[in-house]
Simulated assay, not measured.
Amino acid sequence: MTDNNDTTASGASGGPDDRVIGTPASAEGETIVSGAEEPRREHAGPYPAEETHKHSEEEQRRAEKTAAVWFLIAFLAGIGFFVAYFAWGPNAEGEQAIADPQIAQYSNMALGGTLALSLFGIGAGMTVWARRIMPHYEVSSPYDELPSSPEEKSSFSEFFMKSADESGFTKRPLLRRTLLLSMVPLGLAPIVLLRDTGPLPGDKLKKTLWEDGTRMVVEGTNQLIKAADLAEDGSMVTAFPEYPHNEEHPHGLSLNDQAKTVIMLIKIPEGDFKPGMSEQQMNWTHDGIVAYSKICTHVGCPAALYERGSHRILCPCHQSTFDAADGAKVVFGPAHRPLPQLPIGVDDEGYLIAKGDFSSAVGPTFWDAEKGD
């Protein structure tokens, strides 16, 4: 009991060791952080800074020339980037330049090397500028109150301009001009590189090899398709347009043409088509067989899965789901428009044929979708 009373009495006396850890000191001027009891130095302005080192004018002139040399190297390397692009780029020797791997290797080395040297030159020049021309300061900022005082707010512009003047950007035209000069080629480089992305597709995706009278073949074969081949309800076949295999086209359809023309032929019972199918869309079918583009309108994956019970077409990439019995309208997922429908019919021999091209542009919406699709 005596010890407890002594402790209570000691705590009431306000001794330095009797308060709860983490609470501020009760005595005025008492601090917790070691060394904080030292009086704060008074500073003249709102941004107190003590200059620790200033280079002599002779040192600054030498550094200015060094930085300017680096900026000029960066400029010349930037010009070399353009020279390399047009000397070994895709337009240097037409298709031969693209097909020759040695030319492609030289092109990559030249483009990468000149671009790297240009960026390095700018970085080296800026480093010399900062370390050997600008004055060095040790800046402190007290954290007494979070809001800035009116004096600090009003003096910011003056402080900023003083910093810009001391950096040498305004009074050293050699540095300023060579720095800006070195950045000109880098600013133009992205514009040149955009040429390699190729032209915009325009209306190319609205036109495919499908046209009136084109027969269909089963994917991976040259087997023509008859309507009788899809007699069973729920049947699904992946097909391409019939294309000649000859010396000019030894492999038939190119990969690009395959991606644009691949279709799904689906046999749907007549009574399962939904009222949402327009009369024109119904006219594009034949004996319950409907043809849709197999390329998902989200990002271009193949919508390769079909569930015959619900007549749903599923794209496995992002789960976009389309209703085959309702014009392939989107019923779930990120796709924004239906799969394009191909009008079909049969010829005199009973083979399935196209009656024209797709109803809308094939592929992802961001390529060439019409408003309202």
Rank of each mutant, 00 (worst) to 15 (best):
R177C: 02
A12C: 04
S141W: 12
A291C: 03
M282Y: 00
H245N: 06
F358S: 04
P46G: 14
R19L: 12
E279K: 02
A97C: 06
A74C: 05
E279G: 04
Q60N: 03
V192L: 11
K162Q: 08
A228I: 07
M236I: 12
P135H: 10
E59V: 04
G327F: 02
M134K: 15
E232R: 12
G309Y: 13
G89P: 02
L111D: 00
G11N: 14
A231R: 11
L179E: 00
F82W: 13
E248A: 15
Q105F: 15
G372D: 00
L119M: 06
L224M: 11
D287K: 09
P190Q: 08
D203T: 06
C315E: 07
T197K: 10
H286N: 07
A36I: 02
A259H: 10
A130E: 04
I32M: 10
K206T: 00
S163M: 09
R172E: 00
Q60H: 01
T238L: 10
D357N: 15
G94H: 10
S310G: 14
Q258N: 08
G220K: 09
Q96K: 15
E158A: 10
C315Q: 06
A164K: 12
I32Q: 13
S182D: 00
Y143I: 08
A110L: 10
E247Y: 05
A63T: 04
R61S: 13
L265A: 03
K162M: 06
G80R: 04
T114N: 09
L342K: 02
A328C: 07
F81A: 03
F366E: 11
A25N: 15
E349G: 01
D357Q: 09
P201G: 09
R172H: 00
K371T: 05
Q96I: 14
W70D: 01
D100Q: 05
I122V: 05
E307A: 12
H43R: 14
P16H: 12
M282G: 00
P24F: 13
